[in-house]
Design a protein around this nucleic acid. Structure first.
Lengths: 141, 141
DNA sequence: GTAGGTGTAATAATATATATTACAACGAAT
DNA sequence: ATTCGTTGTAATATATATTATTACACCTAC
């Protein structure tokens, strides 16, 4: 069980925009060529990033650019842009209320698992696009 | 996007076994009644928990019991029993190797996201079945 | 007005999760 | 030995989510 490819794809898209902004026109076809998915997927992701205020997309002429500095964009911003804000784990809907375990499981487990998701958010918030851009250019041998 | 219901269900099952061990015979039907899923689902989960060495299931006669003390079972044990040990996030398989972002994205993002998953494991490892059993019995008003 | 591009809907293909039925094998009690 | 309740597992169905692809109206610059 894992998260979808959307966070990595959206991050890839933002990295390409940040890396090539000015140098190339970062159209959905251009971005699709780096990520290796269908341009429509890129346009959907760009739509989510635009809604979240992370990018501006030029209507008609094409191409996207970041609305703010890479140091002010974190993976939590990206995560929130492309993933629903739902519980990390899925609970069985109707446990038996006549059973002491059944009627308490959601409260007991839910609060603890929510704490774990909160930690994940904090971890994501510590990773900036700037850090990733720097790391991309430090190519290994 | 979220993890399946398996960790919560498996935890619920272990809590019921721990709570009712000795008092009731914890058969798949009994457990299914508390969780409110089909008994076959419970038997599958019990099979995974058995493979992981967390429970023993009595063949023929029926009923399951914990193989060790609730204080020595953590949610990480349960998580490992019921979830594949795969990456938390799914990567696009074939990014463009001719693009500096494409050929580095997996290394750059992968290591950082793996670190987040490692934190999640550490969080899960800190939660014991004993703690949850205690919390279940501290019923709210 | 044409060319290249975006936004979005519709559809298909695929994968994963969950529910359910079915049944062979098992152990205990009689 | 047979019966009863149970487990383990396969097969199948259903639902849901994900990704890929096609199609097309609309937009902007030239």
């Amino acid at each position: 069980m894992q998260f979808s490819v959307r966070l990595p794809v959206a991050t890839h898209v933002l990295l390409c925009i940040g890396r090539f902004q000015g140098e190339y026109k970062t159209t959905s076809t251009f971005l699709a060529g780096s990520v290796n998915v269908h341009p429509v997927i890129i346009r959907k992701v760009l739509g989510q990033l635009r809604t979240a205020g992370l990018v501006e997309v030029a209507a008609g002429v094409g191409g996207a650019k970041l609305t703010r500095s890479p140091k002010d964009i974190t993976l939590l911003d990206v995560f929130r842009a492309v993933e629903e804000d739902e519980d990390l784990f899925h609970f069985q809907e109707n446990p038996n209320p006549d059973c002491p375990v059944g009627r308490n499981i959601h409260r007991v487990l839910g609060t603890r698992l929510e704490r774990i998701k909160q930690h994940m958010r904090e971890d994501l918030a510590r990773i900036t696009l700037e850090e990733l851009l720097d790391a991309v250019d430090e190519e290994p041998m």
